[in-house]
Design a protein around this nucleic acid. Structure first.
Lengths: 252, 252
DNA sequence: GACCTCTGTTGCGTATGTTGCAACGACTGT
DNA sequence: ACAGTCGTTGCAACATACGCAACAGAGGTC
């Protein structure tokens, strides 16, 4: 809708990958380098971009500033933090907190595992709904109609041999997740990693976010992973309590 | 330089503060609301902004994504993390990692203290050079000419009765910091908090960043704070080693 | 239930801002 | 000294983003 803004935002993406020369950036978004220069200058004024020596651009501090300011506004993040940090410290596994946004999952917090084999993720990263444990938890928490609507609308790209590939299979899986109260990603997203996830609830029992543990398969087999479920649920329960949830707030 | 981009970036700042109605945003940047709408739409396409129900806008995931992607590119951050986290866990005080950027200090990592009285800060936040311990450490590490240049060019807004207010006093302080190898902010930034900071060094002995501990005065008096210096320096030394620094890499 | 206000949304013509070009200057390496 | 980068500037032409005004939809009030 707004051309120059559109170009500038695309530019930010290119810069984030790694810092480049002016013409490279120009080629990448298909405009003249002088145009890029002017956009960069504006971005620089606002501290969205910073120049590092010659021919080197990086994202600037305004980026971090705004982002973390916004992250703070996710109240779940604050209230869940202690419980998740403790879970991470106790087990040594990677812990994620994720939220539903617009047909995808967004990681809003992360606690890095202690093992050398690590999952590649990042706060702010987006992931698919159909092949992540957090995705399943978040969608399973929605009313049946909305579940169906989402299941029909999303794509089912195959990531591993275990990936769910049809709306029907996904809906069945969601039903199971809703029953059990937790979800599993049995190497459906990445070949060498499996995860478990459980919901974090708020005052009215509504699901605010999903917390997960990701464990490399070489470290723990499937049964070993499932054995961690009680520990995960204890943590999400604690996080829920800190988020205003009360045991008797829900009926079924 | 680019009007629409300029407006859009300002817009992001307004949204970050808290979500508002269209006309409010329009008033704030002085344009017609239809213009704001179009800018927002473009921002939304790129996931920089997300609409939340009616009359509610928030920063979107692209923001977090890019920001954290960029934070990852600060290698110091990765390598210093374990040592600083340990320091934070051991002492319970707030630990910051900061870097110099363009006449200011930028926080690139933070480990929240366990006490109820907390310092208000945030990753990505910018702070002045003249009244922070990290600022002093970073500037003190520069060659004399550059120190002087910076000392003359920055402003000296008074934050507390203890704030340094002249280039001369600042330069003298920097000299002391360079000698001692650490810096103190004796309630020069905020009335009720004092800090100590020390440098984190890289392969060539160059200063990559500064790490600090911030302690409320009610918890620890000035002498108590200074007593923590050895612990802080042990942590920054460990962080430096992880960043490639070697003891004998420097001569004086 | 009719009226009013407040919000978000669209079409449209125009002026404004943005673009690409080409030329220049600074810098690097040979 | 020269060719080859890369960043930067002025300018003229055009496209684009702008403000306007009118509409739609949601709440609220009487």
């Amino acid at each position: 809708m707004s051309q120059s803004l559109d170009r500038a935002l695309t530019l930010l993406g290119s810069i984030a990958k790694d810092a480049r020369t002016l013409d490279d950036l120009a080629d990448e978004i298909g405009v003249h380098k002088s145009t890029v220069l002017r956009l960069l200058r504006t971005l620089e004024q606002h501290h969205f971009v910073r120049r590092e020596g010659a021919r080197h651009y990086r994202l600037g501090s305004a980026m971090f500033d705004l982002a973390n300011q916004a992250l703070d506004s996710f109240d779940v993040r604050r209230s869940a933090q202690p419980a998740l940090a403790a879970l991470n410290a106790r087990t040594g596994h990677t812990v994620h907190l994720a939220s539903y946004e617009d047909g995808e999952v967004v990681y809003i917090d992360k606690f890095e595992g202690r093992h050398s084999v690590r999952m590649y993720s990042r706060i702010g990263k987006r992931a698919p709904l159909h092949c992540t444990a957090v995705g399943k938890v978040l969608v399973a928490a929605m009313p049946a109609a909305r579940r169906e609507e989402i299941a029909r609308s999303i794509e089912y790209p195959v990531r591993t041999p275990n990936t769910i590939t049809t709306p029907e299979a996904y809906l069945a899986e969601l039903e199971r997740v809703a029953q059990l109260g937790y979800a599993v990603d049995n190497a459906e997203h990445e070949d060498f990693i499996h995860c478990i996830a459980a919901p974090v609830r708020g005052t009215g029992g509504e699901v605010l976010a999903a917390a997960s543990m990701s464990v490399p398969k070489v470290l723990l087999d499937y049964d070993g992973l499932l054995a961690l479920v009680p520990e995960l649920r204890a943590a999400t329960k604690e996080a829920s309590v800190h988020s205003g949830w009360t045991e008797n707030g829900k009926g079924h």
